[in-house]
Design a protein around this nucleic acid. Structure first.
Lengths: 341, 341
DNA sequence: CACTTTTGATAAAACGTTTTATCAAACCTT
DNA sequence: AAGGTTTGATAAAACGTTTTATCAAAAGTG
């Protein structure tokens, strides 16, 4: 019952032709008469022929697989990202492999090494500091790379991400317009450009609106802490900074931590405290009274990234190294920021 | 600057040995003297040699990649699943490719076809009706398969999933013990065994506790409806069935829809209505007053599945076809089911 | 010392493709 | 009809491994 996979050689035998002829027909190359062509195509279809990817890969040096290296494989950002990329890749005849770095440099290096053994034709990567060399090596080995969600300042690698600075600026502006005066900022203690830019956006908007500036109102949360510890830390921050009338969480994960903290402190949103978070999610939509958020254009980011990658894959001397997209975010207004109404 | 990848042949040349010798040393096979061995190893390390997976795959017929085919690539079930499998696979020197079926038979077939071209050595699949033939073909082609989350009744393919029947039975039992008498059941109109078993568990527990039995209290929600439609449908159901004092949602997704419906109807949980859902998630934890849920042992399921797959991969004539694991779930008790306190 | 056995190393085939170079036959030219 | 050109088909090499079969030299045997 074990049916051996049929090969190009078998088809040649079955049709009294040569391997070359079969290959030509199947790939639409060479010049083969219509009747032989038909005969071969028929036999191939009949026997459900599928080329051996390994052999093709070995011969052509292409795997028709792209690698998606992401910070963490759970999370809504990854979800849509993966879906879009999978869909687009499939249309172009590519498969997708996913890997996660978990914000760990060593793991990132391993993952890249593993994928780079001719396993993958191109990469979409959410980069983290420390991986600059490895990623540049990929590029110098002719493997196209597109970064998403972050980038390496000063290094010319194409990337596409949300406009962190301006979206946070507008978020804080929105809070200011809503009447908040003392706006706190909670951010993870991670050395990532995108976080720094969010912070810059915050600073700029605070200054521009003449709101309270106080470094005490900015809280750097240690990234490694357990969830419960993190909640405690945020609670601690919120109880210390009693003057706050609103708080902005710079990441999705932190926003959730924040909600839990606020809930445990029995603070009322938005009357005791206005709340806004970066990166929308389902919880923010449903959690009463609805949490105002900065919604990343995840679909657009993913789509641009895969399009970019496909372009470099299809046209090897199409220089993409200077393509740097920053896509505006959308502010989703919900009940958590309307203390005045 | 483009450094060509070094091959076994290059190493042979560099060390004045033969290809065979290098291969033997690198794979710990054959018998090679210690000094030659050292020389080869040194050169290999120095030049960062990595075998060409394509060539190895072509020669050995193994790709060292396993395929994970899942219903949907977002969602918390997939998240942990992927993480565990990735981790365990990597330990054993395997990579992982992910694909989703989106509950669509045709897409499932495509995905399997794509992976089966010698691209993948083994599969972990969340099966859907209609894929029986394709999956059996994989097995008869010597590719190990482990099903998760569901299975094909009457077909001997190893699988591991939560004990749907008993966990829902216990859930309803818990609701009964909490004093609820008129318990509704909302389930997607999908022809999946696991859903049928959840429904059976419901029926059995209702009967065993002498609670109100009424087919009107069971609501089959059309799966294809848009989210807003789904919410309207559930709202409609809840307003029609005024006698309900509690409702059980048979899937995570439905639980969320349910929460939104209940919220829009301005019903109070748990005083107006007790709420419980299958499959825990972050929203249920944080959404006030906390939603009681049946928490799937996702980690255990994933771990068992990958262990099983690895066993069949490592020992080809180890018969796993009769391994059928049903792992108990845990009931997470929260505020949504305590109207009496 | 003449032989068998063990040791250490290798040549060569095979895996299934793609592609280049080649070639005979058929078709045009004039 | 001789030369040139197009057409249709193929042989063979190559991609980078693994593995079987082979073999010379070294070591063991009586």
């Amino acid at each position: 019952m074990i049916k051996k996979k049929i090969s190009i050689k078998d088809i040649a035998k079955l049709t009294n032709t040569s391997i070359t002829t079969v290959s030509f027909v199947l790939n639409g190359k060479g010049r083969i008469s219509a009747d032989i062509r038909k005969k071969i195509l028929d036999v191939a279809l009949e026997n459900g022929y599928e080329p051996n990817r390994m052999a093709v890969g070995l011969r052509t040096g292409e795997s028709k697989v792209i690698g998606l290296i992401v910070e963490t494989i759970s999370g809504p950002f990854f979800g849509t990202m993966a879906k879009v990329i999978e869909y687009e890749a499939e249309k172009a005849g590519y498969g997708v492999v996913y890997c996660s770095t978990d914000n760990n440099i060593q793991k990132g290096k391993n993952v890249i090494k593993m994928l780079s053994n001719q396993l993958v034709d191109g990469y979409i990567i959410t980069p983290i500091k420390g991986l600059e060399k490895e990623i540049q090596k990929l590029i110098s080995n002719e493997k196209p790379v597109v970064l998403v969600d972050s980038y390496f300042p000063g290094i010319d690698i194409p990337h596409v991400l949300v406009d962190n600075y301006n979206s946070v600026y507008q978020a804080i502006q929105f809070l200011a317009d809503s009447g908040y005066k003392n706006i706190g900022f909670v951010t993870p203690e991670l050395d990532l450009v995108q976080l720094q830019e969010r912070l810059k956006g915050y600073h700029a908007a605070i200054k521009a609106n003449g709101l309270t500036e106080d470094s005490e109102m900015i809280f750097n949360l240690s990234y490694n802490s357990e969830r419960t510890e993190a909640v405690e830390a945020v609670k601690d921050f919120l109880t210390r900074q009693t003057k706050l009338d609103a708080v902005f969480f710079s990441t999705n994960y932190l926003g959730i931590i924040g909600l839990q903290s606020i809930n445990e402190l029995k603070l009322k949103i938005p009357t005791d405290l206005g709340v806004m978070s970066f990166d929308d999610n389902e919880l923010f939509e449903l959690y009463p009274p609805g949490i105002t958020s900065v919604k990343q254009p995840t679909y657009e980011i993913a789509k641009s990234a895969i399009d970019l990658l496909m372009s470099s894959l299809n046209d090897r001397n199409f220089d993409v190294s200077n393509i740097k997209l920053q896509i505006p975010a959308e502010i989703i207004k919900r009940g958590s920021t309307s203390s005045l109404t």
